[in-house]
Amino acid sequence: MANAPTDPAHRVGAIDALRGLALFGVLAINLEMEFRVSIFRQLLPASPDPTLNGVVDAALALFVDMKAFALFSFLFGVGLAIQFDRLSTSPRRTRLLIRRLLALLLFGVIHLVLIWNGDILTEYALAGLVVLPFLFAPRWVVTIAAAVILTFYVLQPVLPSFISFPNRYMLAAFVEAANQTYANGSFAEVLALRVKELPALLPLHLYVFPRTIGLFLVGVLCWRGGLFTELAGRCRNLLAIAGFAAVAGGVLLARFTHPSAALANPIILASGYAALVIAIEQTPAGARLLRFAEPVGRMAFTNYIVQSVVLGFIFYGYGLGLFGRLGSAAGLLLVVAIYAAQVVVSRLWLARFAYGPIEWLWRSLMYGRAPLFRIEGYPRKAPFARL
């Protein structure tokens, strides 16, 4: 039924596995660089750290930072294309997709203000509204648009810009305020500082907004090109792409110091990660190996919000108050523990329910009626229960 939410049995395992793995990277970067310490600290110059903490920071910056978010953006574009295709016979297609993105925007604003100002949902909702008209365009138009937008993103360091970033003194002041308030403040005090930081965070979002739009469009192209559905005979090609991305990313990192190279590198490496995971997932052994990540990916929205709530409690003053008091190495252990818990909980949850709780609410807001929640009622009963 075109107007109904996706039957969980019809999901593509490679997409869920890839999304679940990307969420691990998102958790790692959010915890280490944006909850454990001030989000602005990474924008200030720092001396090399020869300790284990410094090694962890360097490894995350090299292999994970920005790559996980690029991968997440790509997968969101894939999801948009899937929804667009599923609604192809519905006269309400455009309206439903707009409602889906507006509901995401609502979630994003709530998350941004009340939970954590490093939110990506608001940006994704706005970027999705920009990309929506391209879903109706032929593939060549989407290809040109993606190429132009990503080229603009990579060339931003050499182009005139209207974006004004905070200076070093402002950044240092925000770091100092975070060290005091986030570590020791009440919920109201943390909320006040979170809102105060928003204008300083806006330039960062504006700067990466073209990349988000461009990667959404790449996701649309990959879905339309059968990357996840027509994989027979493509495994070698995917491995070749992964190898090329690793070499190209390494060359950019080692030989080029221009800021544009630093912007291009995460996109290249993220494409290599995606190709490698999809190739591995096509073999029986690989599918079994990656199966642990699929439930996390199916509940990515819920897991993302839960991560923010848990990390806020761990690091902010209204909870355990560990802000600024935990090293990177200990933080990485915490990342593994939280993600492992989400693997277990997601698997147990989806054994009983068709959707994660926030995924279910999101679908309900999109369609205007609630899909059945418990797995026992799916699909033997009617696909909808009235709100």
Results as ranks from 00 to 15, higher is better:
E197P: 11
Q180F: 11
L215I: 12
V195M: 03
P259A: 02
A240N: 14
R194P: 00
A177I: 04
G243P: 10
F209V: 07
V220M: 09
G225W: 06
A274T: 12
G250L: 10
G226D: 02
L238C: 08
E281V: 12
A293R: 11
A274E: 01
A246E: 14
H258M: 03
R194E: 01
A248M: 09
E197A: 08
I280R: 01
V220H: 07
G219E: 07
I280L: 00
L290G: 02
V220S: 05
H205W: 01
A254G: 07
G250V: 15
Y182A: 00
V277D: 01
L221H: 10
S186V: 09
L238Y: 09
H258P: 00
L289W: 15
G250I: 15
E294K: 14
V247A: 13
L206S: 08
R194T: 02
L204S: 05
R291A: 09
L231Q: 14
L289Y: 05
G226I: 07
A177E: 04
T229Q: 05
A270M: 05
V195W: 02
A279C: 01
G219Q: 05
A246S: 10
G286C: 08
Y207Q: 00
S186Y: 08
A248P: 09
V220R: 07
L276T: 14
G214D: 05
A242Q: 14
H205P: 03
R255E: 09
L263F: 11
A242E: 14
G249T: 15
E281K: 06
G250W: 15
S260P: 04
R224F: 07
L239M: 12
C235K: 15
L191I: 10
Q282I: 02
A287F: 15
A183E: 00
R234I: 13
A177T: 05
